[in-house]
Nucleic acid binder design. Sequence first.
DNA 1: AGTATCAACCGCCACC
DNA 2: CCGGTGGCGGTTGATA
Length: 358
Amino acid sequence: MYAPTEKPNDFLSVATTSGGADCEAAGCSADTSFAPGASQGGEVGQSIGLFVPDGFEASSLASLSVFEAANSVLGYNHYAIRIYTEFGGQVRGAFGFSVVTEPLPTNTLDSLLIGGGRAVTQCSSTLFDYLRRERPVARRIAGVGLGTFTLAQAGLLDRRRATTQAEFAHELQSLFPEVLVEGDKLFIEDRSIWTSAGMTAGIDLALALLEGDCGPELVFAVARHLLMHQRRMGSQSQTSDLLDLVPKSDRVQRALAFARENLRLPLTVESLAEAACLSPRQFSRLFHLETGHTPARAVEKLRIDVAQTLIAQGRLPISAIVHETGFGDRERMRRAFHRATGASPMAVRRDTGRSVMA
DNA sequence: AGTATCAACCGCCACC
DNA sequence: CCGGTGGCGGTTGATA
């Protein structure tokens, strides 16, 4: 659960002077009315900072939307959200737009996220010194996507488990042999250092940070606010088969949406075909053509994915998860898990308990 | 472990 | 003729 920070905050005053429109768009209102350490509605605010290097990718900013949404759901600024560069001022993203930033604060940050990008050149040694200095002070530090490389270069990931975008995992490992790279995970936490894969995995990481602060109920509300179909756990593979389920036609998309929303129903090919307004035969054919999966297999993958998430959360008994995911009975779910993961649901629960929250 | 049943899948063909 | 669609029937695999 959330532990209030006792640290002073000298950077909030900077925010009122240098926080520009870009900063406000990311959720940090220039006239933010709360200050960490002071109560509002019985809650204490926390500072979330994102460091962006020159040439950062826009997806680095996406993780901030989680904390912005949390503020929106809560109805007040529980999180003070800031974007930083080494010395403040404008920084240019990989795709041409600029963001107004503040200089990195000292001894004040509760959580620091590090963004990255393909176009990012060498970061300065001052930054690495800063990260090494802040690591024991900040409650948690996270490398989002290629930001993992910055943490590795600063030596923060030595003998720690870490992940990054799958296509750069090999490079990360060869450049930094001391890092225990797990290139297929969505996100990993190892002793308060978090790392994630690229793109939307940063959002999943941010949701996990939020859950640590405020509990699962707020996370569910924020996920709904962000119109996320389902949350993904860190242990899930970046190359999850679910990511392949991106059909081109409206009709197959309708059927998939129907399946996601009605996972508890039997979901036969016939019922999915009806949702897609196609004959079962044509639906089957089209579905396989567009997703590379047969309808029954895709439904099973959806069920397993949701079941894995619920199992990892550990809040529901297996029998309730069986019902929620439409498996019908424990034996069917156990067999489906064994087919997909080679392990039983209980083994997955034990495994995720170790690897996600370790 | 063996068996019956049924849904899913897929090749083929016909129709529009 | 071609592409999209639907029906039929055999095979396969999961389940009871």
